[in-house]
Design a binder for these strands. Structure first.
Length: 560
RNA sequence: AGGGGCGUCGCCAAGUUGGUAAGGCAACGGACUUUGACUCCGUUAUGCGUUGGUUCGAGUCCAGCCGCCCCUGCCA
């Protein structure tokens, strides 16, 4: 089966690059970067950025760097730089030997700041944070100049050196760009370039007590690495003039350009780092890699493939309008991938015992089953069949509607790969619950035997009681029942969490599933796609439901 | 209110110099089916936030209006 390349239309960033290639702006070079701050786990929104940046580099025969934006040691940890690398690799991208840290450039950044001071474009300011806020002005009123704005170059040079030397307490002074306190754009009102902060940095240790701000470090890091296209999200659009300002005195005339695109938002889940952290810290999920989380590690544990996530990122497009993508598209991508690639298996999630009263006691047949009807190369396996079996509770109904074509009293159904059976007797407990069915089977209807042309509409999956392995199956639903997050920040979203986002079932699976270790993916017939969880133990498998099969019957039921 | 953006089918999203609305997801019909799955076929914008204008002709140009998002961290 060949992979069809659906003709994808170009996005506005590709158009920009195409123009740059025409005008030879970067001599045909395309060099991007993925610049995460190591202060949290990557999520599907980052995957969009990763696929965009690495994808563009690949498409244009360029390069993409991985760069940790580690300019704020008070929030960053090595734990995250490790998980980020793992996630990018897992998604299928390689930065080769180009893994950098903004902190690699601290000395150059410092020297460039000295240059700006010398040029009269930066000054040391002693205003407190509170005062600076007051001086900044408001949306409609211009700010006013800091009284320290007119310090001499010499004084600024000495003070900045003193800042570096640790002569002043944290927060007592900052280095500021001298731009325009009356600018209608706040980020141009003499933004802070450096702050004093005695925090241990995960890479530079205690070498520095002053750290550069993002707006200063980022354009310079891009320039140092020879980045051509610096792609970031929409909220940085206002910062672009500052990005360009910082680079005005850069040594090379070939400067990177910033382009902004809309970050990904998904229905039925939460995406902000803060909310994800809340879920983890309040113990509402088992961790950053809980299979309900939209984190890369969560999706990985859930069973999503990197291919399906890349496909998703290709399909959602890249544009500038804020949008919320229907999570159904993500589900479509994983179903499409796994439909052709995942082996089939039978697992009964909620067992109902049935006895084939006319099947010889003690007899066991090994029935042939295809591993994947979409892919013959995946071969066949055998499944034991015997007198006592389990079927799904949902697959029996005592008083069904005419549209129900599963099992009911006196009705026939086929057991997949096996025989047509007929329900003869319903056995109940004292409360009237159905606890067992007595059925008969028709020996002439064995699958593949060609001894009968009888057709029945219903086909059920099953497990042989004597041979089945006990499995724990974790069924996941959306984190949020409502499609929209209903914003209004705060922790309101906690009240909207789906109480049934995790339902655990103790099921019965065919014996082949006994010894999974984690990561194996299957389609459980008529149920969905599942992945073995690392919690699996020999003989005691645990499965996560990645996504259910499309279910038009369930849909029809819901609509009544 | 000042600045920066955005507004094309329920959800995404193409739309090169104005020439007469791609595609995907979802939905809905139908065919096929030993997974009510998959696959296949078909249906869904005389309409591009809105009102005017320019033009033989506008989603594409102009003007006004409306709506939504971002910006007053020594966060990124």
């Amino acid at each position: 089966m060949s992979i069809t390349n659906t003709p994808t239309s170009s996005n506005f960033i590709q158009n920009i690059i195409n123009d740059d290639q025409k005008t030879n702006k970067y001599g045909q070079r395309v060099h991007t970067r993925f610049p995460p701050e190591p202060n949290g786990y990557l999520h599907i929104g980052h995957a969009k950025s990763i696929c965009l940046n690495f994808g563009l580099a690949k498409e244009y025969n360029g390069l993409c760097n991985l760069r940790f934006d580690d300019t704020n040691p008070s929030k960053e940890e090595v734990e995250y730089v490790d998980s980020i690398q793992q996630d990018v690799k897992w998604l299928g991208f390689s930065w080769d030997n180009r893994m950098f840290y903004a902190s690699d450039y601290f000395e150059r950044l410092y020297q460039y700041a000295v240059k700006l001071i010398t040029l009269g474009k930066a000054y040391v300011c002693d205003l407190t944070a509170q005062q600076m806020r007051e001086y900044r002005g408001t949306l409609t009123e211009p700010g006013k100049d800091s009284p320290f704005r007119t310090r001499t170059v010499q004084e600024n040079l000495e003070l900045f050196q003193g800042m570096r030397n640790g002569e002043y307490p944290d927060g007592s002074r900052v280095l500021r760009a001298k731009i325009d306190m009356a600018s209608p754009n706040f980020t141009m009102r003499d933004p802070v370039l450096y702050r004093i902060m005695r925090a241990h940095h995960h890479r530079t240790g205690d070498t520095w007590c002053i750290y550069p701000m993002y707006d200063y470090a980022h354009p310079l890091s891009d320039a140092i690495e020879g980045i051509t296209h610096s792609i970031c999200t929409l909220e940085f659009e206002d910062h672009r003039p500052l990005y360009d300002w910082v680079l005005e005195d850069w040594e090379s005339s070939e400067k990177p350009q910033q382009t902004e695109f809309a970050r990904l938002d998904l229905t039925n889940t939460v995406m902000s780092k803060r909310k994800l952290r809340t879920l983890v810290e309040k113990g509402l999920v088992s961790g950053w890699d809980d299979p309900r989380m939209p984190t890369i590690s969560g999706l990985r544990r859930r069973g999503y493939t990197p291919e399906s996530i890349r496909d998703f990122c290709d399909r959602i497009g890249v544009a500038k309008s804020n949008s919320t993508v229907d999570i159904a598209l993500l589900e479509h991508c994983i179903r499409e991938d796994l439909n052709t690639n995942a082996a089939r298996a039978m697992t009964v999630l909620q067992p109902l015992k049935i006895v084939l009263t006319n099947y010889p006691e003690g007899q066991v047949e090994e029935l042939e089953a295809e591993n994947n009807p979409e892919n013959e190369d995946m071969g066949i396996r055998t499944i034991p069949f015997s007198r006592v079996l389990y079927i799904e509770q949902e697959d029996f109904m005592e008083n069904p509607s005419k549209k129900y074509f599963r099992l009911s009293p006196g009705k026939e159904v086929r057991l997949k790969y096996a025989y047509i059976i007929k329900c003869e007797e319903v056995i109940k407990d004292e409360q009237g619950n159905v606890i067992e069915l007595h059925c008969t089977y028709d020996p002439e209807t064995k699958s593949g035997a060609g001894t009968s042309n009888r057709k029945v509409k219903g086909v059920l999956h099953w497990a042989s009681a004597e041979h089945a392995v006990d499995v724990e199956v974790r069924l996941y639903e959306y984190l949020l029942v409502n499609e929209e997050e209903d914003e209004a920040d705060g922790d309101d979203f906690l009240a909207k969490l789906n109480p049934n986002s995790l339902v655990v079932r103790q099921g019965k699976a065919e014996p082949a599933l006994a010894n999974v270790t984690g990561g194996e993916r299957y389609q459980f017939l008529r149920q969905g796609f599942f992945a073995a969880d690392p919690d699996s133990k020999p003989g005691k498998p645990v499965f996560n439901r990645i996504v259910g099969l499309r279910d038009s019957w369930a849909k029809a039921q819901k609509e009544g």
